[in-house]
């Protein structure tokens, strides 16, 4: 416990050190980060005549809600929103669970072929995804999943990145002594996994879950191929805004903002917990 007090103390020491430079750097980064979203908002709040006539204006117009209601009625927005929430949540859960399981085994269990398999996992990240689409389509066709949301979920549910991440994470976050102790106590590996590894993995898993959720939310290419226009995810549905011969970018970028909004809401409500939790877990220990 003494270490922990010490650390908390030193944390205080460092807190006083937050320099103006740090704020300046971060402010610049934040402005750059927010720019495209702001730009989308600006364009998305004008009528189409205004954007072609004055493309470099940074001041929003007054049509945001009007454009938004056009977007929502032009495309199956609510259905797509529901689908996106379902798909992203399911994928995030699968990825976190499977990655935690595999990460636990790779990080803490001894078995024949362990390092070989781990290298194999990392190597799988190197498979160029573009070419995999054709054989993958054949798989989905065989499963009868063309147009089904599961055809989107399944390929995303396997994440070599996630396994790599959880392996690295658990290697450090989960002391060998704990595993050893529980083994000596005669606990099954399942129990060890459930009551020791999973709780220890929580901060890393939260971050992995967040990243996976966002990545799935913005994923376009494969869902576009496999899903129906009548049963789309958000990016696929928003694509329909670019339908006409003349594309109205005020609607397209309005849609971009609408699609990002749920993620920003997620940030506001879960972000504090997610990020603060992840980070502070480290310090509080």
């Amino acid at each position: 416990m003494s270490t922990s007090t010490l650390r908390r103390g030193s944390r205080l020491v460092r807190r006083t050190q937050a320099s103006p430079t740090a704020y300046v750097i971060l402010a610049v980064v934040l402005v750059g980060s927010a720019f495209p979203l702001w730009w989308s908002f600006v364009i998305g709040s004008k009528d189409s005549a205004a954007i072609v006539q004055d493309p470099f204006s940074f001041i929003p117009g007054g049509h945001f809600l009007q454009n938004a209601s056009t977007v929502v009625t032009t495309i199956p927005f609510w259905k797509a929103l529901g689908n996106s929430i379902f798909v992203s949540t399911t994928v995030a859960l699968f990825v976190v669970l499977f990655s935690a399981m595999a990460g636990f085994a790779f990080a803490k269990l001894r078995f024949r072929g362990r390092s070989g398999l781990l290298v194999f996992v990392i190597a799988t990240m190197a498979v160029p995804t573009q070419l995999g689409i054709v054989p993958l389509f054949i798989v989905m066709s065989k499963l009868g999943w063309i147009g089904s949301l599961w055809a989107v979920i399944l390929p995303s549910a396997v994440s070599a990145f996630g396994v790599f991440w959880m392996t690295q994470y658990l290697q450090e976050a989960l002391p060998d002594e704990l595993i050893e102790a529980s083994r000596v106590d005669g606990a099954s590996t399942l129990r060890t996994f459930w009551s020791i590894a999973l709780p220890a993995a929580r901060p890393g898993a939260a971050m992995l879950g967040l990243f996976t959720f966002i990545a799935t939310w913005t994923n376009f290419f494969w869902p576009f191929i496999i899903l129906d226009p009548g049963n789309p995810t958000l990016p696929v549905a928003l694509q329909q805004l670019q339908a006409a011969y003349f594309v109205d970018y005020s609607l397209v970028l309005n849609g971009v903002v609408l699609m990002a909004l749920p993620l920003i809401v997620l940030f506001v409500f879960a972000g504090r917990q997610l990020v603060a939790g992840i980070m502070q877990g480290a310090v509080k220990g």
Binding site: I133, V134, I138, S141, Q239, Q242
Partner: peptide, 27 residues
């Protein structure tokens, strides 16, 4: 024409599916 913003993808996709046809036709 369909989607001037990111048309290349469409060309690619369209050809792609055309070819998927052949592939899964044989499968």
């Amino acid at each position: 024409i369909g989607a001037p913003a990111v048309p290349s993808r469409h060309v690619v996709l369209a050809t792609l599916t055309a070819s998927l046809l052949a592939l899964s036709a044989c499968s």
